Computed example of a mutant assay.
Amino acid sequence: MFRSASGIVRNLHTQVADRIGTSIIRGEVRPGDPLPSEMKICDMLGVSRPVVREAIRILTGKGLIESRAKSGARVRPPEAWSHLDPDVLRWRLASTDVDAYLEKLFALRNAVEPAAAALAATASSAEDRRAITRAVEDMEAAPDNDAFVEADIAFHKSIYMATRNEMFWPIAQMFEITLRQSFTIAATGDHRKRALAEHRAVMEAICAGDPAAARAATVKLLGNSADDLDRIRSRAPVRSA
């Protein structure tokens, strides 16, 4: 019933939570279904009861299950899950079709990121603007694709943090997990010169305190990023800058 998710695990109860969580995300245990009893999970996975109880506590905190004294643990509907939780994101990535995942990711970014850039233009501190500028400079100086991806992730995270609005910050924190796959794919394209210019345009608008320009530049960047990703995944030629 339980399968291991990819990624680094820290200790035994997180391994158990990893396996159960992945099974839930994959639909192997459906919403409303009960989990096996603690003792059965112990037997299935070869772990102690305290380990299983801690794993159940972890999954309860992430909204995947609810545990009741008499009826045991049951899977909650996806609407109740903590979808921005790093582990839930990781389990989702390990279980979801890449195209469907990327489509949902771009829908989120298109809805939120232009507004975040506009807010960053008026709310960011000097240190925030330095972080955004440094990320662009690191992208331009990146010696390889891995370094480029790291700098690109830092750039987008910095924009959300620069809103100075804690409601945006969880999105920044999820990017370490969610953007890496799409950025790694996109980094192989030959559109980098244009992409760098678009990132710099966003940075310059934020640093100039121009929310309208920051919003417009972000809309352009995201639109071209989605197009580039589609072309790379379909092996079609990417248009030049």
Rank of each mutant, 00 (worst) to 15 (best):
A135V: 06
L222T: 01
R164C: 12
E150C: 07
R68W: 07
F168W: 07
L12T: 10
A111R: 06
V47C: 09
P36S: 00
F106V: 05
V88C: 07
L64Y: 02
L102M: 10
E66F: 10
L64E: 02
W91D: 07
S67A: 10
G72K: 02
V52N: 07
A17Y: 00
T96R: 00
E79P: 03
Q15R: 15
V47I: 01
V51T: 15
H199P: 04
W81G: 03
E204C: 08
K62D: 11
I65Y: 03
R129L: 13
A217M: 00
T14Y: 08
E166D: 14
R192P: 14
S37D: 11
R30Q: 14
E204S: 09
D210W: 03
A100F: 08
W169H: 14
N110E: 15
A121S: 08
D146W: 05
I171S: 13
R49H: 06
L93A: 08
D33K: 01
A120N: 02
C42G: 04
F148S: 10
D43N: 12
L108E: 14
E198C: 03
L93H: 08
E113W: 00
M39V: 14
I153A: 04
T188H: 04
T22G: 15
R134G: 15
R239V: 13
A5F: 05
V219K: 09
A195P: 11
V16C: 04
D227Y: 11
D138C: 06
V16Y: 01
I232S: 05
V29N: 10
E103W: 01
I20H: 11
D230K: 09
S23M: 06
A151F: 05
I171E: 12
R180D: 10
E140H: 07
H83W: 15
I153K: 07
I24C: 01
A131S: 03
V98N: 07
P77W: 00
T96C: 00
L35Q: 06
A214Q: 12
A213Q: 11
E54V: 03
K70G: 12
S225C: 06
A213W: 04
P50D: 12
K104E: 15
I8R: 13
L222Y: 01
R164M: 02
I177N: 10
A5V: 03
T163V: 10
Q15E: 13
V75E: 01
M44S: 12
W91G: 03
L64F: 05
D144H: 00
K157S: 15
S225M: 09
N11E: 09
C42K: 01
H13P: 13
G223P: 14
A80W: 09
D190S: 06
V149S: 07
I177W: 02
T96F: 02
I206F: 04
L108A: 09
N11Y: 09
E166V: 08
W81H: 02
A123F: 04
R10T: 13
S95N: 00
F183R: 14
A205M: 08
D43K: 12
A17L: 12
R92M: 13
L102R: 05
A142C: 03
A216C: 06
A154I: 02
D18L: 02
E127D: 14
P237D: 00
Y101K: 03
L93S: 04
G189L: 06
V51L: 11
E66M: 02
D144W: 05
E204F: 00
S124W: 02
